[in-house]
Computed example of a mutant assay.
Amino acid sequence: MNRRSFLTTTAATALLAAATTLPAFAQDPLKVGFIYVGPVGDMGWSYQHDLGRKAVEAAYGDRVVTSYVESVPEGPDAERVLTQMALEGNKLIFATSFGFMDAVMNVAAKFPDVKFEHATGYKRADNVATYDARFYEGRAVLGTIAGHMTKSNKIGYIGSFPIPEVVQGINSSFIHARKVNPDVEMKVVWAYTWFDPAKEADAAAALIAEGVDVILQHTDSTAPQAKAQEAGIYSFGQASDMGSFAPAPRISSIIDNWDPYYVKRVGMMLDGTWESSATWGGIGDGEVVIGEITEAVPAEVKAEAEALRDKIASGEYHPFTGPLNKQDGSAWLAEGQVATDEELSGLNFYVEGITAELPK
């Protein structure tokens, strides 16, 4: 062996020995941020998203560090909070309300190396994904129960904002209440908020004054349940189980289960496979869950609702299946025709039979 080969071999051996004795440097944990439109204690929408955040922590332990900012108004404040999260080193940020959409797009353009995910929106970019749940599937099941349970034939619905996601739910609830009770009327009051217990209570009171004896909602607090309890009428949990009001007035609920989605998407960041996508999961995906149907509901009605839930989950039945007309009587879906995702994602009209006026 010549001198040069000897020195090369000796140096390589020394480097290998050093590598085996020096401690390995651990990879920095992935920082994941969440922005909520309401407080985590709303027991509804934001509460369920925060359960998903906790599921991420449980799944990945010290490989991730999560943080959240709650009660962020939709608008300029959202852009400020998202920017701060990106500056703090979060590499994946979940924005969990429809009204955060433009703020997400603006901030994502400034931070191309950060991945953003926006709940219920439709705008995407290379570093922006969207995710949603087919809440209208759960509304079909609750509408079926409501149609059976009303004695006044008047069902109330508290809307948040007149966006397609909410209009889908009103229509689906009404369609399926009418299927089991052709005399049902749907009364709608708009709260123009996602979370404001005082406004939600006022909306519930207005519906009760109109004679409704069952209330559904697309707002996040338990204030409508409290009003229903005072009036001795029925209500449903929204976004989370709201089981503290069971067995009456809360007779079932629609539950948003974000845990599997958040765990999956964070896992994709960790293994380098994240990509922009649009996800719209439903009952069959475990993303929309029907809560316990209480003993206040007759056994045969419970069985009917659970059968509908299972048909939707299997794909055997779609809640928007014709024949269905628009509110003005014009044709929408022919016999057996199913609404497309494109139609539903832009839904801006009531179906025939709803007499309320849809705000523009």
Rank of each mutant, 00 (worst) to 15 (best):
V288D: 11
L324Q: 04
L324G: 01
A231Y: 05
S277E: 15
T321A: 10
I283M: 03
A239I: 14
N325W: 02
P319W: 01
D285I: 02
P260G: 05
S244Y: 15
I254K: 12
G291D: 01
D310E: 15
I255C: 05
V338F: 07
V297D: 01
G232I: 09
V263F: 02
K311H: 14
W280E: 11
I254F: 12
I293P: 06
K326Q: 12
S253K: 13
E275L: 06
V263E: 03
I312W: 06
A339R: 03
W258K: 01
W280F: 14
P260S: 03
E316V: 09
V263M: 01
V266R: 04
S240M: 11
E292Y: 06
Q337F: 11
G237W: 10
G272I: 10
P260Q: 07
A339H: 04
I312S: 03
G284W: 02
A299P: 04
V288M: 12
N257V: 09
A331T: 14
E275S: 15
D256N: 10
Y234C: 10
W258G: 00
I255M: 06
M269N: 08
V289T: 05
P249F: 11
E304P: 08
L333I: 08
G281N: 12
G322P: 10
V297L: 03
P298T: 07
M242Q: 15
E295I: 09
G322N: 07
V266Y: 04
L308Y: 07
G272Q: 10
E275T: 14
P249T: 14
S314P: 02
A313K: 00
G267V: 02
Y234N: 13
K227W: 03
G281M: 09
G282L: 09
G282T: 08
Y234P: 00
N257M: 04
A334V: 05
V263N: 04
E300M: 07
G284L: 00
A226L: 14
V301Q: 12
G237H: 08
K264E: 15
A299F: 08
M268V: 01
F245E: 00
K311F: 11
S276R: 02
S252M: 06
I312D: 00
L270A: 01
G267N: 01
D285T: 01
Y261Q: 05
A299I: 06
